[in-house]
Design a protein around this nucleic acid. Structure first.
Lengths: 203, 203, 203, 203
DNA sequence: AATGAATGAGCATTCATTCAT
DNA sequence: CATGAATGAATGCTCATTCAT
């Protein structure tokens, strides 16, 4: 850990490797990715990988971390940019739509990562997810405080929101090209989430 | 020629294998599972596996199919049992809560399956997902017709609902034991989905 | 050995298996032939093979024996049919030409058999070869006695004759269809063997 | 991509492997040889084999090629060394006698190679054989031109000669130690081939 | 006697990791 | 620091053989 601290200019090499690895890990399962492939794609020798990462699993671990951070930053930007709670959530939806198209890799990684509990310390994965939910949670909380949202468990709402949205773009990804996805209009989705399923009269 | 005939009267053995495999594939990644392990867990010889399944991938494929069917049946039962649309959806939520606890394996499988598009014909995977969404979609459609739900795109709503719900139990699974999950009270969740995020006054 | 003596009507089954096996062993290497394949081709169950033959190697052994005998009989017929020594040898050549076309399998078997010294007792293989050479040897010996052939080591001559002839049809087989083989005119070949390479004047 | 580059300066290792493999392939059938055995005999790791050869079949293929080349060179040397046609052929006979004793492996390989048409491109095998026959053919042709040999089809004569000779040493090998082989006196054999079977008076 | 479902030993091949250069 | 040749553990799959029916 403390070993490979930070020769300037070495950080870039490490990042170069991570980026190349991300690209590859995103298209294949962990066990289908060969270290030699990562080395080739990074433009370094196979042995070099082991100067920067203790093992294949460690490399994968760092790729996950990197992806989470990237995602987290995007999310934060969205939430900061929005004028009010609803606007913030809408921006998140838009972001994910784009994210899924440009960074589909991430989707894969997240899905697989969930499976590799022996690779990435569960604790850590938990914290990443938690951080993401927390961010949304705060926004919702604020929305409630401001009277924009009704009173509800903000954590629950955050999960439902993120899950619902994820389902839309996840599906859109998986069956990529097969159909619609454009027909997932943010307005309509937002309306469903915002005012719920019930008829107004029933409220 | 007709090598993989599925010996008559041996269906139980085939199912026995599938069930043992499900158990194992759910705890590890595809490539971490050894056929010898599946054989041992099934109580059959290694060679026997190949009497019933052409290859490891074929076995995995059948496990997925089996899981989808199991899930599909559960879902259908829930939706048939419910008195009205809202009740049906609530039953689905309850079911998933239980499903996630008894059949967590399925969660894993689905996640991985998405990644192994070369293993399970994409087309087929698409159809399974579609069938599930369709089932929920029909219920929501009926709900709209009956004036129970407001007018909205039922397919969109179905995806949001399933995604939101999935996020809840998915999370609950992944961080298993770590916390709450009991704190995901169906009532509260249903309320959020049912009447949305917004304050009533805003409607 | 003495175990499976001879139920009438069982001999045919044994022979049926040997013939089917011959056909298959002739087209593939020993290890590429599956017992199940032999069983299917023989029209018997896999287990049945083991009632008649102790093992795959034993079966192969018997196939070799059968082939040698078939060949030996053909050879004997030729040699008996010929009017004089030269005529007898010519008949052998004709026979082999035909043999090679109809029974190419035998060629394969002989070649492989040489390699499987652990399968067929060397001693036995030696005796088969010896019997064949002896047959030719006797004819040559008689030819010498009758003044038809010059005085020479009949065994040596037999080997040269059989080898030379074998080379012709062996090649013809291996490159089958690729070229000539018809251009191997018995007359011409016989002339070379009969009067040798040298110019007459040199004699 | 260019995976099988044949590392520079590693040609010796490649040859070392080929030689060890030759030794082993000569004593057993292709399918009885384990790659681990070849590795052990070569003094390299199992994985290393695959750095130099794409597969077991590819290795076998190269062993055959190597053997043919070795044989071909020996043959060429004999033919170049002889003073005249007859002398050249005698030298070939001597060579094969020795070859068979020191390189008996080759015999095995050739026999098996004929059987594995799927392993070594038939076309290639054909060319090797052809090259060998051609070499002898040329010598015979020259012998005819020079009036040393009578007028005859040189290709036919070459095949008969090579076949006859092969039969002598082939047999000698197979029943190795069992008897004679010394009794195959070059002079006597040559006499038979040279002046043929017939009595001089008959000419 | 005849069968064929079940078995497990056996083997080719891959790939993460090391270490000599 | 960087490399990539060498390694051997690990695993999917085949097939001769057995044995319960």
């Amino acid at each position: 850990m403390a070993k490979m601290e930070s020769y300037p200019g070495q950080i870039e090499k490490k990042e170069k490797i991570i980026k190349a690895a991300l690209e590859i890990f995103s298209r294949k399962l962990f066990h289908q990715v060969a270290m030699s492939e990562v080395a080739a794609a990074s433009g370094v020798g196979k042995g070099t990988l082991y100067l920067y990462f203790e093992s294949k699993e460690a490399l994968f671990h760092e790729v996950i971390k990197y992806s989470y951070n990237t995602y987290y930053e995007s999310l934060k930007n969205c939430l900061e940019a929005g004028k009010n709670a609803r606007d913030k959530l809408e921006k998140v939806m838009e972001m994910q739509k784009g994210f899924m198209q440009s960074q589909k890799k991430f989707v894969y990684l997240l899905a697989e990562e969930k499976l590799i509990s022996s690779l990435i310390l569960e604790e850590e994965a938990f914290q990443y997810q938690q951080k993401i939910i927390d961010l949304v949670c705060q926004v919702i909380d604020k929305g409630i405080e401001d009277g924009e949202f009704k009173s509800m468990d903000p954590s629950l709402a955050a999960k439902i929101f993120m899950g619902g949205v994820a389902a839309l773009w996840y599906g859109a990804y998986v069956y990529e090209g097969k159909e619609y996805q454009e027909q997932n209009p943010v307005d309509e989705i937002m309306d469903i989430i915002y005012s719920g399923f019930c008829t107004e009269s029933e409220q």
